[in-house]
């Protein structure tokens, strides 16, 4: 199964991944409209963590044993059979924020306006997630799990 991996040594901290993620998860998929004219305001599902010169872009790790799946009271969190990704069904989500509390990586954020959990869906239906495609320095890669030894 393909996963998103981080190469923190090449992350410049430009946050272009966040920008592109936000656009991808907006209604219009147009960068200017997404930022200036959409309500509820779309959120990026990837967040760049920074400390000193070290930075990396973190999004849902789609854990094998995902605590958010166990903690979800409505069954909104589910594992997609096709991609093995952990996804949130916004129709079912009631915004209890249990998943936000249990996530060991802190990568589920609250969409206050929509009152649903907002998390990475690996750009469902796309061959390559937009953060990977648009990273200017190759700091986010999308590849098969087996091949990865670093992360």
């Amino acid at each position: 199964m393909k996963r998103i991996y981080i190469k923190e040594e090449y992350c410049m901290g430009c946050r272009i991944c966040e920008v592109q993620c936000l656009v991808q998860h907006s209604k219009t998929k147009n960068i200017i409209k997404a930022y200036k004219g959409e309500y509820p305001k779309p959120l990026p599902r990837i967040l760049v963590e920074e400390m000193g010169h070290l930075s990396f872009a973190l999004q849902c790790r789609h854990c094998e044993d995902a605590p958010c799946l166990d903690s979800c009271i409505t069954g909104a969190m589910y594992r997609d059979e096709l991609t093995d990704a952990v996804l949130c069904n916004e129709e079912k989500c009631v915004g209890c924020w249990m998943c936000v509390m249990v996530c060991p990586f802190g990568v589920i954020s609250r969409s206050e306006e929509k009152r649903v959990a907002s998390k990475c869906d690996m750009c469902y239906g796309k061959t390559e997630p937009v953060c990977v495609k648009n990273c200017p320095n190759g700091a986010i890669v999308y590849r098969d799990e087996e091949k990865n030894e670093e992360c």
Partner: peptide, 13 residues
């Protein structure tokens, strides 16, 4: 200004 979305990529870079 009509295109700038204030994403601040330039500020950080």
């Amino acid at each position: 200004e009509s295109k700038c979305v204030a994403c601040q990529a330039c500020v950080r870079m």
